[in-house]
Design a protein around this nucleic acid. Structure first.
Lengths: 207, 207
DNA sequence: TAGATTGTTAATCGATTAACAATC
DNA sequence: TAGATTGTTAATCGATTAACAATC
């Protein structure tokens, strides 16, 4: 187990999903070449990826124990315990995330939504939707260090500042805008516009 | 205007957003150092990015014309015309996307949703929700070449196969699974699990 | 033993950054 | 002209791939 590069980390959820599938099918060991073939990666890349997360060395001619690998990857991904988060911006995307149970499988539990619009306050499903004036107090009380931004671009920087002020250290940003944050705060951008750009670029190249 | 690298392409939506903001504020020219400072990029990176998309060379001591850059970037990103897409999987995330008007600003128009569950068929807002048995015919008739997958992991590969069979050439995949596709089909993965992994990794490093 | 798979060390590749000459 | 900003060519860096020895 060595230091894990960013690119390796991004591949881990795919390995995890597939290993769980294999485990369900009763398989117990897996080798780098097998995984490489499935994913269309090179053998060497898979071997390096596994080496960087596995708690035990692989066995020549055999490979890796699937159950052990699953636990190792879950640890690397931070799935040991549920990480609490707040979400700001309860529009259509925000609502979807509040009701999206899949996040909890990835170790993330959204415990409350916030919105600047008083008409949106109340609750959605089992999650409360609170006013922005209570954000800081809430985050402090609940020891929240992750925030999700699903507001329009124009409002995103202000919301970001408020989250930082509330003590949040990691921000998942769905607004298509570059956020300015102090050192030590991580902004993970989920830029739909950028993804669409990749797709259109591919389609245009076909013509 | 040269060939645009993948990384450069991914930064373009952020430049575009900021340039539109500057334009709205009445500014007419912008230089690489100005943009670099805003985004926290290096001057040289911004200069290379702009050089690879701009239709005209920048002017020493002045910079680039904002309006021209905006048009150039929109062309690169494929925003000239609305690209039609279908969405498969009308759960909470799928519903959110069907109602998410922002996609149209990024050049993407979802014209119909599809679902395997007969109870979900009908419509959502102004978008029809159709059965999977009509997917191929619909895509052919409407000349659709982009599909969005928002089904659970377990169903994703089968849906992917059906989209490919329906003639789709670009797939935007929200299921946390590696999809196997023939050559020439682009899969753009939007892996929420991977993003969360980056965020948790950062948080864990703080402890 | 033979062969498949492992881990390690070196080479390649793409992207970023640095150095510098060109220009308005 | 002087100085800011440009584009270009070279160096660095991180990630991927290749080559190869170790091992069950």
């Amino acid at each position: 187990m060595s230091i894990i590069s960013k690119q390796t980390l991004l591949r881990m959820p795919y390995y995890l999903e597939h290993l769980k599938e294999m485990h369900k099918n009763g398989e117990t060991v897996v080798s780098a070449p097998i995984l490489a073939q499935h994913f269309g990666y090179t053998e060497i890349q898979v071997r390096k990826d596994l080496a960087s997360v596995s708690s035990v060395q692989g066995k020549p001619k055999i490979g890796f124990n699937i159950s052990t690998l699953i636990v190792d990857i879950e640890n690397v991904l931070g799935y040991q315990h549920l990480n609490k988060a707040v979400l700001v911006g309860c529009g259509s995307l925000g609502h979807a995330f509040l009701g999206y149970k899949v996040f909890s499988e990835y170790g993330c539990e959204i415990i409350a939504g916030f919105d600047a619009n008083p008409e949106k306050l109340g609750s959605f499903g089992d999650k409360p939707i609170l006013g922005m004036n209570t954000l800081k107090e809430f985050c402090n009380k609940e020891a929240i260090n992750m925030g999700i931004i699903t507001v329009p671009a124009i409002a995103a920087q202000r919301v970001c500042d408020q989250l930082v002020d509330a003590g949040v250290k990691a921000i998942w940003n769905f607004a298509p805008i570059h956020l300015i944050v102090p050192d030590g705060i991580l902004v993970q951008n989920e830029n739909m516009a950028a993804s669409l750009a990749m797709l259109f670029n591919h389609l245009n190249a076909l013509k």
